[in-house]
């Protein structure tokens, strides 16, 4: 009936296709109030059986995965090592694509993992760490703020600096990141927690701090 309705129905059909495939559910586009004419409804139904529609959905998924591989490589490795790849599939199936950009896609994955698997402490540390790194890196480029070595950093300045985040790790962050590089088993969760500060002011963007907030 209007191009607007047809476009909305088509995009929603493409975005919900991964969930339809994953959970074997029927398309519900025609049940929605899109005010489509009979030809439009028939066309949308017919698409399900076409290779062209499948390929269109696949392309969208490839690009999305490609963005995540670039924006969150450590998180993807962690998901793989923890054998939690199904969460990535679930993310792609359940969270609609809203962006073609790396940072926004990374943050959407973080939000999903925080909701869906908050108990996976190593995983949450890594996705928070990667997103914070990306934000700090971008801020550094956009504002060209001056970086300093950790010896010269002042914690009071850091605490109020923009694009600065704290992430809690449940094992030594250096060891954990090392296992992601080598593919070894990730370390056990420790009683001891490690706080990492990520900031565009820090040379290399991050460092471990003690719980009393003194820089190591």
């Amino acid at each position: 009936m209007s191009l607007h309705n047809l476009q909305n129905a088509l995009v929603e059909k493409i975005l919900t296709e991964p969930a339809r495939r994953k959970f074997s559910i029927q398309s519900a586009i025609n049940d929605k109030n899109y005010d489509l004419d009979d030809d439009e409804k028939a066309w949308l139904d017919m698409l399900d059986d076409t290779t062209g529609f499948k390929v269109t959905c696949d392309i969208q998924q490839w690009w999305r995965l490609a963005r995540l591989k670039i924006a969150t490589p450590l998180t993807l490795r962690m998901l793989n090592q923890l054998k939690l790849g199904n969460f990535l599939e679930e993310y792609q199936a359940c969270v609609p694509c809203t962006t073609l950009f790396f940072s926004a896609e990374a943050i959407a994955l973080k939000d999903f993992l925080l909701t869906r698997c908050a108990d996976e402490q190593h995983l949450i540390s890594i996705i928070e760490f990667e997103c914070a790194l990306k934000i700090a890196h971008e801020y550094q480029y956009f504002s060209s703020c001056e970086m300093q070595s950790t010896e010269k950093l002042n914690m009071d300045n850091l605490l109020t600096a923009p694009a600065t985040e704290f992430v809690v790790f449940y094992s030594n962050p250096v060891s954990l990141l090392g296992t992601l590089m080598t593919g070894e088993l990730v370390p056990e969760i420790e009683d001891n927690k490690y706080t990492v500060i990520i900031s565009p002011l820090i040379n290399g963007y991050w460092t471990i701090i003690n719980n009393d907030a003194a820089l190591q």
Binding site: V11, E12, I59, Q60, W63, C97, T98, T99
Partner: peptide, 8 residues
């Protein structure tokens, strides 16, 4: 606002 992720 949603993005199809592919030119339609």
């Amino acid at each position: 606002l949603v993005n199809a992720g592919v030119q339609l």
